[in-house]
Design a protein around this nucleic acid. Sequence first.
DNA 1: CCGGATCCCAACCGATACTG
DNA 2: CAGTATCGGTTGGGATCCGG
Lengths: 137, 137
Amino acid sequence: MATTTAARRRDEERAAYDAFLAACPSRRVMDRISDKWVGLLLAALADGPRRYSELGRKVAGVSPKMLTQTLRGLERDGLVEREVTAAVPVRVDYRLTPLGEGLHATLLHVKNWAEGHVEEVLAARDRYDGEHDTQSG
Amino acid sequence: MATTTAARRRDEERAAYDAFLAACPSRRVMDRISDKWVGLLLAALADGPRRYSELGRKVAGVSPKMLTQTLRGLERDGLVEREVTAAVPVRVDYRLTPLGEGLHATLLHVKNWAEGHVEEVLAARDRYDGEHDTQSG
DNA sequence: CCGGATCCCAACCGATACTG
DNA sequence: CAGTATCGGTTGGGATCCGG
């Protein structure tokens, strides 16, 4: 039947698109920085190495699970380095690699833009909510 | 009892932290660009205005729902403008505002970094998977 | 042609409890 | 101190159907 054709075609397009996205470098970086904790961790590590628990305290709201998981992802991508000191209570430090510092710098760029334009965004949002009437009428 | 204290304190910390995040400009921008389709849409609109269905075709994998939803969010934040032409079949064009162009430029910066360093990331990932032995034994 | 409403599944994230 | 395993709540995204 003809009706299946459109769905089929959309499906193929999506498959091709997915493949395209998987190969796209900027997409991968986007996915990384989209992560809820990555930006915070990078910022927390920006001014020097930190211990696991230090990071936990510095970002405050993070659970051990997410802390470990995020750190692992970062380490896997070569953005942070993990150094284990086999003392009596084990000690583990994390620090940014040059690559990680580069990403952090880029993120700072974004942050910079954000701080410079957040007022405009907020104003636009306000205007929009006013014009489009959130719900009252 | 004393055991509740720690939980209490964690809770308070988290609340304060959440408040901090809510007020943080870069966080809001992060949240926006974290969105799965925002980057693509911005890119699709970079070289001029587009119709709704054009966008749908250009990003290929997107559903009508997400297309509208994303566009609305962008419009609300003053990043794109929506222009309705009341013809027989309604026609709607979207285009970047100066603000939207600014964000796109910033994103291009990120993209640029990504393309320049994706090889290193991939290499690191490969090394990590080799050293840490994905599962083989 | 544009887009809103609904249902549903999958992924993510947090809290807790436990190990080395 | 550093990390792992599991469970449950919450959210986001896709498919589909319906209205302007």
